[in-house]
Amino acid sequence: MWRLLLKDLYLQKRRIIWTLWIVLILLVAARVVMGDAAPVIFFATAYFLTSIFTLQICYNEEENKGLAFLRSLPLSTREVVSSKFCAMLLVTLLTLAAAFAWSLSLPTTNIFAAGKQETALMLITFGELYLVINSLLIFVYFRWGYARVQFLFSLIMTFLAFGSMSLSRLFPKARFLEAGLTSIQGASTGLATAIILIFLLWIGSIKVLQKKELS
């Protein structure tokens, strides 16, 4: 499985390097312009990048008919699916760690400073949400192919950009959204939910790949 994971990183190496350079320039520019508000931009960019990486590993397999190639090798479907999930998790965690490290390294933008813990927890919760979204993208890829992944990603991005602002108006009676949990309780519940969802999507992906017809 690790070899498959390294394969994804190897095949994406040029794109990863280019993307990191562009992001670095954008982040430096954001910090110069936005000052204390910059960490939120750091994290929003980091989350977005993890989804882009997930889209890329799916696109790369689709473009090269890679699934048919991998399934013709003496490899189990579990290994193929797990490699995609592990690559996504690894890149997401590394990106988040980099974003936190960046944030901590600059005193004016330290989100763990007193009075800013709420921001930190909110960012962690959003990180969990992105892990679930990325897992969902992988599941959709194994089930329906890359075209649907793109469609779903566009919908999610549109919703996150505009729809989330209207959430309380769309669901006025959904009081559980403001159920009075402490931020730590909320983040822990979110983490548990995210783990369960990712596990279910992983199992689902294995099942659908076993039955998938590959051309």
Partner: peptide, 15 residues
């Protein structure tokens, strides 16, 4: 699959 070699009609190797 250990015993079989498969060459498909269209290349499915990573470009």
């Amino acid at each position: 699959k250990q015993l079989v070699g498969y060459v498909p009609e269209e290349s499915n190797l990573y470009e």
